[in-house]
Design a protein around this nucleic acid. Structure first.
Length: 718
DNA sequence: TACTATTTAATTTTT
DNA sequence: TTAAATAGTA
């Protein structure tokens, strides 16, 4: 076999990783160092040269996109279809296992996947049923608690023995939620992973089967694995296992989602005699940009250590611009983009990055004014849109009448006169008789609900039954088509005023197309509709369309990970915004912010601008910020200040004079004990601004830490 | 039951 | 500021 396509064009480090002998391998792959390349070429090497069967390979990624890309690249490298190779996301693979071994996993055959939104609805409903105060037990917080623990592999039973009553209640809610899910065959994202782990842990035969099969395990973005994912991998690898993992501790930005950077450190202990390969040659950015990135990240502790280099040009200095305010900042950025575009470059090569989504607005306004096309990434993805979720709920009801979530979602959507009162009756009945809403509705129509509501309910049920029976033998897309029309969703959303309604109808029609083009995963052996529903939950649908439009790219730093652009603007570089104020407290969080900044800087190929605003309107009030501490961590010689306005220049890292070194707001000192009407007693941790506009950060004994506006908070000084 | 006014709180989001 | 969630009214 000619190994040229597999090994040609690889540098020494890459080649060392790709051709490593059978042993655990940890590839520390810096930004832009050819990480994906190493992974795909490694698989090609195994199959093409070492004669490993695709069948024995398991490749794990974090996104569907990465998984699809990997399979595609390998197939084109080896020019053979790799259909027997398992490539997928952790969640996708876990899902596949659970479908295959649903009995061993203790699940009903037709279990449903709950996405984040569905999960929240379930939790909210349970909290209401338990008649708890929703402002005390915030559904989102409860969800966070549950998912955090599941990510760490903890079941309610593992959390017993809590003294703190608040914690005990959380554990109780987790327990109630889990029982509900188990009783109804519902599996949330975290549960997919945890169940798949337990499946192997508790079934030795099964585990051995998969250990036999997957002799070659490869993992991408290893720094993003959470506890349960890591345990799952370790279980599969077993003693003497030899996983090939690729990651970058400096690009770990999902700690708050359960990712544990420590796994990179544990790896070498858990798998003795690991071969460590560092990919440090960068093929993306100029030397100046890399110098800045290296210097910044050097401020973090406990790194595995890595220094990016390039044999390319130094390139231009990194430009810093201090805007008057956020509008001025946006104006500056847009001016530079216009220059860029006038020099004959594509707009899509320019990216405006920011810490939080809310910051996109001012750029959008300025871009609209300047008539420059742009695209904002993030936001709702296809399968998360309300109209799509409605349609999916109808489809779920066709599969399973007793799906209470879906029932609740669409019984009155579009409105058909089944209101809160009727639902109240249904829920009461369902709870009293431990049955589903659908069955309760049937029973209550017989006796209990009369009049308009009863009639509507009957009509609704008849419609579902009819849709099911009449479309049962049709193709999937035809069923979807009939459902979106007969349910009244198309007519309902079409009435929404303006383009919005138009867009929603188009989305519904797009769902029909998606169903038409849907290729079910054969290995799942599910009926088409069930497979489609699972697909919809696991693949939120990508949000990047119109690749032919030449648009400026706007996105958060998080969503920029993995991408690259010739021209990059890191905006809102102010302390409090970036690093975000909520992360400035503890050093772990701050280091993650720094990694985020590192990710941002390393997105840039040739030109990089950092901008900030001296005054920023945030949440409707003006605030003054200091330049981000990250700016001062960059080497002076690589940085150049842009100061077009006539103004006394001053080093950006020196604190500004005369700006509110914040006079403490009336009677409030750090450490001051205060009482709040709702949140109870707490201690002032921080403040900003002055007078009535001042904001205080208070750590409440019960409610935790909150930012409050002086004028509205009505705090009592204790 | 459906629409409108008021209140509330405000990172990041691979699945 | 503004979006979303809730409370209040027709």
């Amino acid at each position: 076999m000619d190994v040229t396509p597999i090994l040609g064009n690889l540098n020494d480090a890459q080649r060392e990783a790709v051709t490593a002998p059978s042993m655990p391998v940890l590839v520390l792959a810096g930004a832009g160092s050819g990480k994906t390349r190493v992974l795909t070429h490694r698989i090609a090497w195994l199959v093409g040269v070492e004669d490993v069967s695709y069948h024995s390979i398991l490749a794990v990624t974090f996104t569907n996109k990465a998984a699809a890309e990997m399979r595609g690249r390998i197939e084109s490298l080896l020019e053979t279809p790799a259909s027997s190779m398992w490539v997928g996301t952790f969640h996708g693979l876990a899902h596949r296992l659970l479908r295959r071994h649903w009995q061993e996993a203790g699940l009903p055959q037709s279990f449903q996947i709950l996405d984040a939104d569905d999960q929240l609805r379930v939790i909210r409903r349970l909290i209401r049923e338990m008649e708890l105060d929703e402002s005390r037990w915030v559904p989102k917080d409860v969800r966070g608690f549950i998912n955090r623990n599941k990510d760490d592999g903890l079941r309610p039973a593992d959390l017993e023995g809590e003294d703190d009553p608040t914690q005990r209640q959380y554990v109780h809610l987790y327990d109630v939620y889990q029982r509900h899910c188990d009783a109804n065959g519902l599996v949330d994202f975290a549960e997919l992973l945890l169940r798949a782990y337990e499946l192997w842990r508790d079934n030795e035969d099964l585990l051995n089967h998969y250990r036999q099969r997957f002799r070659y395990v490869l993992v991408d973005e290893f720094q993003d694995t959470n506890v349960i994912q890591y345990r799952w991998l370790r279980l599969l690898a077993g003693r003497g296992g030899q996983p090939f993992v690729v990651g970058d501790d400096d690009q770990s930005i999902y700690r708050w989602r359960g990712a544990r950077i420590e796994h990179l450190h544990h790896y070498q202990k858990d798998f003795p005699d690991t071969k460590l390969v560092r990919l440090e040659q960068n093929y993306r950015s100029t030397a100046s940009i890399l110098g800045a990135a290296n210097a910044l990240i050097a401020n973090n502790t406990s790194r595995l250590g890595k220094n990016l280099w390039t044999d390319g040009e130094d390139g231009e200095a990194i430009r810093i611009y201090a805007g008057f305010n956020e509008r001025d900042e946006a104006q500056f950025v847009i001016g530079k983009i216009r220059d860029w575009s006038e020099q004959g470059n594509a707009r899509q090569e320019a990216a405006i990055l920011y810490r939080s989504n809310a910051q996109s607005r001012v750029f959008e306004e300025a871009l609209i004014n300047a008539a420059i096309p742009y695209r904002v990434y993030g936001g709702l993805r296809f399968f998360e849109r309300a109209e799509i979720k409605d349609a999916l709920a109808y489809l779920r009801l066709l599969v399973n009448r007793d799906d209470d979530n879906s029932f609740e979602r669409v019984v009155n959507q579009p409105t058909r006169g089944i209101g809160a009162r009727t639902m109240e009756l249904l829920r009461e009945y369902a709870q009293a008789n431990t049955t589903s809403l659908w069955k309760s509705a049937g029973a209550l129509i017989e006796n209990g609900i009369r009049g308009r509501a009863g009639k509507s309910l009957f009509e609704f049920m008849r419609m579902i039954e009819e849709m099911d029976h009449q479309t049962r033998d049709l193709e999937l897309f035809e069923r979807v088509d009939i459902v979106i029309n007969r349910s009244g969703l198309v007519a309902h959303y079409g009435k929404d005023p303006g383009e919005k309604g138009q867009a929603r109808v188009e989305n519904l029609e797009e769902l029909v197309s998606a169903a038409r083009g849907f290729m079910p995963d054969e290995q799942l052996e599910l009926p088409p509709l069930d497979a489609f529903l699972a697909h919809a939950a696991l693949e939120s649908g990508d949000d990047q369309g119109d690749p032919w439009d030449d648009c400026v790219q706007l996105m958060t730093l998080h969503s920029a990970k993995g991408l690259e652009f010739p021209l990059v603007f890191l905006t809102g570089m102010e302390d409090g915004l970036f690093p975000h104020r909520l992360s400035t407290g503890d050093s772990k969080a701050l280091e993650e912010e720094r990694r985020l900044c590192y990710v941002g800087i390393t997105r840039a190929m040739s030109q990089l601008y950092l901008t900030y605003a001296e005054q920023r309107r945030l949440h409707g009030m003006d605030s003054y910020g200091m330049p981000s501490r990250f700016i001062s961590e960059l080497p002076q010689e690589l940085v150049e200040e842009v100061r077009p306005r006539v103004q006394v220049s001053r080093p950006v890292y020196r604190p500004r004079r005369g700006l509110p070194e914040a006079e403490s707001p009336a009677g409030m000192r750090l450490g001051q004990r205060v009482r709040h009407g709702k949140f109870g007693d707490g201690v002032v941790l921080n403040y900003e601004g002055e007078g009535a506009h001042a904001r205080l950060q208070v750590n409440f004994e019960q409610a935790g830490t909150k930012w409050l506006v002086m004028a509205y908070a009505n705090l009592e000084v204790l």
